[in-house]
Structure formats: structure tokens, C-alpha cells
């Protein structure tokens, strides 16, 4: 075997091993979620269910109220995504293309605030949310996430490429600014809208610390919070936890696979300057 072939084997072999390492825990999760209760905790540990069953999922949805948590996650992530789209698209476009007094100073201030980690705000935010009587409600999770500096930055970077002549032409035709935004600008922003949608939805779906703080009773728990509280119980049931994990992981994984080009685009735009 010559050297070039040996090198090709090494590269592809290493890649295969890496992919096995990244995917194995997820495949194991899926497999254990289909095992009857108690059968994963045996020695040697089984890789595949001897008798696959959906019993864990049935128990979770019927007895453990998983359907409610799934719905909560959808409501919270969906609400945040819709609101963030409106706020960030409007603001990002305005910072890129509209001229108004104080524009650059305000934008500079926002960029500077990006270095402040969110936990600094959490204690006063909790008190504020308490004053507004929205502790332990959807609003308590959704409202603080309705706009993000990063999202505005992302839209601004993209919107800067819109030619001014196009906007001027629409103005000469007598169109108002809102009309121009809706009719001319939004169609041009389609790729960044998809990027913003998937980034926001995934971030909201996976967010943990703030929902953990603000959701004090289990009525409004999102999936990650419910899963963490299940996992921290004394002696939880592995097979059931894995079924819960599947429900938490798979929806966003599918969304990512569907829109991965836009997701990665967002990551790259975001890494240039944060």
C-alpha cells in the first residue's frame, strides 16, 4: 500500500472515530429510551433494546405531564422568536439604512453592552419581574428575550448591503417608511430572517438559567427545566429520562438539519465581531 493511500485511510478513519464519538451518546439515548424499565441498568450494559417498547414515552406523556412541558417550550420559544424577529429586524434595518440623530452613538452603546454577561442583570431582573407580577408565567420568560443586541447586529450587517438607490426610488414614488420596510426591505432580508429565526428559536429552546430562576412552580416548566428536575430526583429511572431527553433534543435537531445552512451562516457572521 503506497503512502497516499495510507494517508487517506488515516484521515477518513480518524473522522469516522470522531463522528462515532459525537453521535454515539445520541444513538444510545434513542436506544435506551425504547428499553423496558430497569433493563438498561444491567451488566453488561445493553446497546440495543431486546424488546423495543414505547412504554416510557406513554408513561411520560400520560403520568408525568410531558405534553404540557413540550407545549410550554413551544409557546415560549415560538413567542420569543416571533417577537425577536419584529424587534431585531426593525432595529437592525434602521441602524443600517435610516439616518437619524444619535444613531451611531446608540448603536455603539449597544455594542459596548455586549460584553456584559447576562448573569449580572439576573438578580435585579428577578426583582423587576416580581414587581410586574409575571414570576412563574410565560411572560416572565418571553419578555426579557424579545430583543437581542446580537440579533440587531446580525440584521444590521446584512441590511447594509441593500442599495440606497432602491430605497430612494421607493421614497420618490411616495411610499412611507413602514411600507418601504414591508414591501422592499423584508423580501431582501429573507436569508437573514431564516438565520435569525433558527438561531433565536434554538437559543430560546435550550435556554436554562433564566427559566430555572423565573419559573418557580412546575406549571410553566419548559422541557429542559422539567428534565433537570426529573434528573435531580432521588433514583430516577434511566429509560424514562432518556425518553424525556429524546423529546427535548429531537425537535430542534430536526429544525437545525432542515435549516443548517442558515444556522451556520449566523454563527459565522456572529464570530466576526461579537
Amino acid at each position: 500500500m503506497n503512502r497516499a493511500r495510507a494517508a487517506a485511510w488515516t484521515v477518513n478513519g480518524l473522522l469516522a472515530v470522531l463522528a462515532l464519538v459525537t453521535l454515539f451518546p445520541l444513538l444510545w439515548m434513542l436506544s435506551v429510551s425504547l428499553m423496558p424499565q430497569g433493563s438498561a441498568s444491567t451488566f453488561p450494559p445493553p446497546l440495543l433494546p431486546a424488546h423495543p417498547t414505547l412504554a416510557n414515552y406513554r408513561t411520560l406523556f400520560v403520568a408525568a405531564d410531558l405534553g404540557r412541558y413540550l407545549l410550554n417550550s413551544l409557546i415560549v420559544s415560538g413567542g420569543i422568536t416571533l417577537g425577536a424577529l419584529v424587534c431585531n429586524l426593525l432595529a437592525g434595518y434602521a441602524f443600517a439604512k435610516l439616518r437619524f440623530a444619535g444613531r451611531d452613538r446608540v448603536f455603539g452603546l449597544l455594542l459596548a453592552a455586549l460584553v456584559i454577561p447576562s448573569q449580572v442583570a439576573m438578580m435585579p431582573l428577578f426583582l423587576l419581574v416580581r414587581e410586574l407580577h409575571i414570576v412563574d408565567s410565560y411572560a416572565g420568560v418571553i419578555l426579557p428575550a424579545l430583543a437581542s443586541i446580537f440579533g440587531i447586529y446580525l440584521v444590521r450587517q446584512y441590511a447594509r448591503a441593500i442599495p440606497d438607490e432602491m430605497l430612494e426610488a421607493a421614497r420618490i414614488d411616495g411610499a412611507g417608511e413602514l411600507r418601504i420596510f414591508l414591501r422592499v426591505v423584508l423580501p431582501l432580508l429573507k436569508p437573514i430572517i431564516l438565520t435569525l429565526t433558527i438561531l433565536t428559536f434554538l437559543t430560546a429552546w435550550n435556554d436554562f438559567m433564566w427559566p430555572l430562576i423565573v419559573l418557580t412552580g412546575n406549571h410553566h416548566f419548559t422541557l429542559p427545566i422539567a428534565l433537570a428536575s426529573l434528573a435531580r430526583e432521588h433514583n430516577p429511572d434511566v429509560e424514562m429520562l432518556m425518553a424525556g431527553s429524546v423529546v427535548t433534543v429531537v425537535p430542534v435537531l430536526l429544525l437545525f438539519l432542515l435549516l443548517q445552512r442558515y444556522y451556520i451562516q449566523g454563527l459565522l457572521l456572529g464570530s466576526v465581531k461579537r
Binding site: 439515548m29 435550550n206 428534565l227 424525556g244 431527553s245 433534543v249
Partner: peptide, 15 residues
Amino acid sequence: LFTPVVTNLIAVAVI
């Protein structure tokens, strides 16, 4: 290789 990034932290920590 990118998949773990988009998985839910809590779920994979449990795994």
C-alpha cells in the same frame, strides 16, 4: 461533528 452543539445541554448532560 457539529451535532452536539445544537443538542440540549440538559438532555446530553443527563446522557
